[in-house]
Design a protein around this nucleic acid. Structure first.
Lengths: 190, 190
DNA sequence: CATAATATGGGACAAATGTCCTTTTTCATT
DNA sequence: AATGAAAAAGGACATTTGTCCCATATTATG
């Protein structure tokens, strides 16, 4: 549960890694590749083995809003496979990335037959609800500066790893505002 | 999936209603009662039979932020029971309310033994992730007026049923800003 | 290496939102 | 009907954030 901004789920990653299942395959991506497009059908569930993937949503007015950064063990596509909707987010790698790919029907079978897997997925979903709720609440009720301080505390290498534009889109503010805030903090010696 | 602001889950409600289970009891509340306090231990999962419950979070700076309004069939407490954390939200009735109460251990048993129940909970969780993601993204990237229009479209009786303060806290803005926006819309004849 | 594309940084001004405070309205209770 | 508490409404001003634009770095690529 270390840095919350880039979500990880070691328990799930370990379980999936140890699960010898011929249906589960591995994919590799370079930086900046799109894994799933917004509004596309989702046929497989994926779990990050290594790397960072951003999960974002482009609004009708052209603004991008980043929902989450997925790190090791984080799962995506499961929401869509479960309820049969097209993807509401786009998924794009930030760094070099490896993912496990579980076909949708195999995912359904595992949920039914593997109690431990079922439990891990329930917990992963509960965790997503929990953290997004806390994050959005914090964002809505605090100034940009507070949010930045919180992120840096969680993840000191933030500015080296994540592009400014992405940080701004994650906080739901403009790049200009983010820069202004960083400047203000520098002047105050933070 | 009708009005999204006040979330409902008919399928789950129906299933729970038809499930004859001696462990599941019923509770009734008047308006404005607290069902679960923030940071309290949660020992039971609850499902709304009738009424509206607000799920909100008080930040360190005293701001309240409303996560969701739960209507018929919506479940709460399941996140906490699943991962064993204290409640991150407070739950408070808005109208007269009836809820089904499922003790945590019984909830765990049902998940293990009742495939249909398990599936409904998985879908309910997936749905929560889906809708909160979409809502927060919309809120962050649109002006108050757009958000209000969206809410009114989803739920025309909004202003009659939900207090202004609650609408403001749901949108993550101040009451003053909300009033100003409503005024501006009136002048424009919206 | 040259050039283009992209990321970063910031000035000047406009617009949106928040803060503080006062007034009015509504509504429950005596 | 009288009173008080809570909800709603809004004036005046401060602050924050956004928009538009341009300049400078940095990186990718032919």
């Amino acid at each position: 549960m270390s840095h919350i901004m880039i979500r990880i789920n070691r328990e799930l990653l370990q379980y999936i890694t140890e699960l010898q299942d011929s249906g589960i395959t591995c994919e590799t991506y370079g930086p900046g590749e799109e894994i799933i497009g917004q509004k596309k059908r989702v046929l497989s569930v994926r779990i990050v083995k290594s790397g960072i993937v951003k999960c974002y949503l482009t609004e009708d007015n052209g603004n991008d809003f980043i929902q989450e950064f997925f790190g090791e063990g984080e799962i995506f596509g499961e929401i869509e496979v479960l309820n049969g909707n097209p993807s509401f987010c786009a998924l794009e790698t930030i760094t070099d990335t490896e993912v496990c790919k579980i076909p949708g029907d195999r995912f359904g079978e595992l949920l039914q037959t593997d109690k431990k897997f079922n439990e891990l997925i329930l917990k992963a979903l509960a965790s997503k609800v929990h953290y997004t709720a806390i994050r959005h609440s914090y964002h809505q009720s605090h100034a940009i500066e507070d949010n930045l301080l919180r992120l840096k505390k969680q993840f000191p290498r933030l500015i080296d790893v994540i592009a400014k534009r992405d940080i701004a889109n994650y906080l739901g503010v403009t790049l200009r505002s983010l820069n202004r805030t960083i400047n203000g903090m520098r002047n105050k010696g933070i």
